[in-house]
């Protein structure tokens, strides 16, 4: 099957724009809220949202961090390739804050589970919301659902959703690929 474009560059921009407006509805000026992007791929989306929110709200003091979940994953020693970590940069505590956790694709939910664990090292948040660009709503392994969704995709296990970013792939788009093996 040919790769199918789910969101092109223009649609992606509109979607991110809408997600930001939804966030502002619930978080006002973000004085008690923080944004946390999950490494490695969720960070690109989180950065865009962070910059757009600063523009929209005129507030340049929004807390923004990048969280690596490698050491908290539940598939250590269960994969063929070892898990190599990325950098965590969170220079604030999430204690009593409303956290918006941001990732590109929600599929099995295991990454988010690990993210919730990893975040405990930075305090006890007042609450956590989940924002994802793509929600692959079938085949969830855990009872985890997003609060903000860019687009919901119904896909089968042999398909793979690729979110491509200008920084790493030279283009902004979301593609549905047909693959034999899937690894989240």
């Amino acid at each position: 099957m040919q790769p199918r474009v789910i969101l092109n560059s223009r649609q992606l921009e509109l979607t991110i724009n809408r997600l930001c407006r939804q966030l502002i509805e619930n978080h006002d000026d973000f004085s008690n809220s923080v944004l946390i992007g999950l490494q490695p791929r969720g960070v690109f989306l989180a950065q865009r949202i962070y910059h757009l929110l600063q523009e929209m709200t005129g507030c340049d003091t929004i807390d923004f961090g990048q969280l690596d979940i490698t050491f908290f994953r539940d598939d250590f020693r269960r994969r063929n390739s070892p898990l190599i970590p990325n950098q965590t940069t969170i220079d604030f505590l999430v204690e009593n804050k409303k956290v918006v956790m941001i990732d590109d694709v929600l599929y099995t939910g295991r990454t988010i589970r690990a993210g919730l664990d990893a975040m405990l090292a930075f305090g006890r948040p007042a609450g956590v919301e989940l924002l994802v660009l793509i929600d692959r709503r079938f085949r969830r392994h855990l009872p985890i659902q997003p609060d903000y969704t860019g687009k919901t995709v119904d896909s089968v296990i042999s398909e793979r959703v690729d979110v491509r970013w200008e920084e790493t792939d030279g283009t902004n788009e979301v593609i549905l690929n047909s693959l034999k093996k899937h690894d989240e």
């Binding site: 050491f71 970590p85 965590t88 930075f122």
Partner: peptide, 23 residues
Amino acid sequence: FSTADNFKDVINRPIKKVPSLRD
């Protein structure tokens, strides 16, 4: 070294522990 960079970050957090080797 690159893995130790990440662990150095971990041991400077308020909670200095990760669950990787729990089994």
